[in-house]
Write a protein that binds this DNA or RNA. Structure first.
Length: 288
DNA sequence: GCCATCAATGCATTGTTATA
DNA sequence: TATAACAATGCATTGATGGC
């Protein structure tokens, strides 16, 4: 089985014992018989790994070799594409057998890639822990600051201006973002990082997923389309404000804004049902 | 290839300060 | 006090990135 082979190969220090060319041929012949263990050891040694690719579901087993054609399709002069697809990584993982426990202990970089390729739960956990957004970075920098931000700054019940909504007591401005589909954000500007962090925390405790980015000397706390839509579903004031904002932009915005606003309106019919149809007729929006 | 998001940058209007 | 210079604010735009 894979176990005995891989452990055996290790024990013999086969990489030193045989020439690379011989070793490569050995790996290739084993692989032809469906035996992946030698390939695993070779890949752990001379394999190329791109975690980025694995995480974006691009699975390629590439090994550096002098004569790549012996192993698989050549990529350039020195690399062999041995296999593709997630299944190949599953095979590698299976080939490791008990040896995997050792690799676990070692925290072997490439071994982790194999696990990331084959274990969905691990992928999710990995992403949660490693993919830092700019808000996470900011939080780390300022985490020693546990100073309470006076809540009073949130509590005023002022009426938001046009194009603004109140989210968890925070006045946020609506904003259209161009992309192919267009998005709608709500943001809040402040030049005080700690205020920004406090506001973000408040939004988070309201079940949202805010981010903070720098804009010149300011910090921008914002929530993205998905969050805004969820808010709109359960908060009629927000729903209404968004509907009006979109209608206004679709009518009087710059060409770009009109475009985006119309797209969003058509995609999320929710907002059409909010305002009176007369209002929308006035706004001159044609929705088919 | 499409779409949403990220993050940087741009810009017009409004507010503030300096100087005559 | 008039106004020129500058800064802050409230946005808008855009290229890059990454998932599906």
């Amino acid at each position: 089985m894979g176990v005995s082979v891989s452990v055996h190969l290790r024990a013999n220090s086969w990489r030193q014992k045989w020439s690379k060319a011989e070793a490569i041929d050995l790996v290739a012949s084993h692989l032809r018989r469906g035996e992946w263990a030698p390939l695993l050891t070779t890949w752990l040694g001379d394999g190329e790994t791109k975690r980025r690719e694995v995480l974006s579901s691009k699975y390629r087993l590439v090994i550096a070799a002098k004569e790549p054609w012996r192993l698989g399709n050549s990529i350039g002069a020195r690399k062999a594409l041995v296999a593709t697809g997630r299944e190949a990584f599953v095979k590698l993982r299976e080939a490791a057998g008990v040896y995997g426990e050792l690799l676990d202990l070692l925290g072997a970089h490439k071994w982790i890639d194999i696990k990331l390729a084959t274990d969905d739960a691990l992928r999710v956990a990995y992403r949660l822990n490693t993919e830092k957004r700019s808000i996470d970075v900011l939080r780390e920098v300022y985490k020693h600051n546990n100073d309470e931000i006076p809540t009073q700054q949130f509590s005023h019940a002022e009426e938001p201006r046009r194009g603004a909504v109140v989210v968890a007591g925070v006045v946020m401005y609506l904003r259209l973002v161009s992309g192919t589909g267009g998005s709608l954000l709500a943001d809040h500007y402040t030049s005080d990082v700690r205020k920004a962090l406090a506001i973000a925390e408040r939004l988070e405790s309201a079940g949202l997923r805010p981010n903070i980015v720098r804009s010149g000397s300011k910090y921008v706390v914002y929530i993205a389309t998905a969050d805004l839509l969820r808010l709109a579903e359960r908060d009629s004031k927000i729903r209404r404000a968004i509907a009006l904002y979109l209608a206004e932009k679709a009518k009087n915005g710059t060409p770009k804004q009109r475009d985006i606003a119309e797209k969003i309106l058509k995609r999320h019919l929710l907002f059409l049902s909010i305002c009176s149809s007369r209002r929308f007729l006035e706004a001159g929006i044609a929705v088919h």
